[in-house]
Each structure stands twice: as C-alpha cells, then as structure tokens.
Amino acid sequence: MARSETARADTDDVGGDGEEFDPIGTLTLIGIYFVILVLAWVYIYFVEFLGRDLVVVG
C-alpha cells in the first residue's frame, strides 16, 4: 500500500483542505446511491404519481 489509511490527527491535518484520508471509493458509491435516490423519487412522484389519471384535487 502506498500510504496508510489511518487518520493521523492534528500533526499534519489541521484545518487545511489537503485531507490525509480521502475515501474516494466510498464517496463515489454514496454519490451513485444519491443519484439513484433522486432519480427514483422523480420517477415515483412526477411520473407514477402525478402522471396517473384522476388526481385527487379536493
């Protein structure tokens, strides 16, 4: 392994954006889940729900 994934606090990781521990794989995975969630919501609400006949309006 090129580098340790153990978070080393304080010494060289104070404040800056240069993070020592960047779980890019996890971020990507969560990003994919997020996109699926948003697309599913758009489909369920706007296509399946609002697209049906006889929407209850009162």
Partner: peptide, 27 residues
C-alpha cells in the same frame, strides 16, 4: 383502479374526493 382516486369508506362517515376527468374511458 390505476388512478389516484382512492379512499376508505367508513360506515357513518362520508368520504369526499374531487377529481378531474379527461377523455372518455372505463375504469
């Protein structure tokens, strides 16, 4: 069936739902 018009019907209560119909069809 297949629409959003859906309610419970409870004895003693009156369920009120308003919908707008489109083209002639059968449900």
């Amino acid at each position: 069936v297949g629409t959003s018009a859906n309610t419970m019907v409870v004895p003693g209560e009156v369920s009120e739902i308003t919908v707008e119909t489109d083209e002639p069809t059968e449900y």
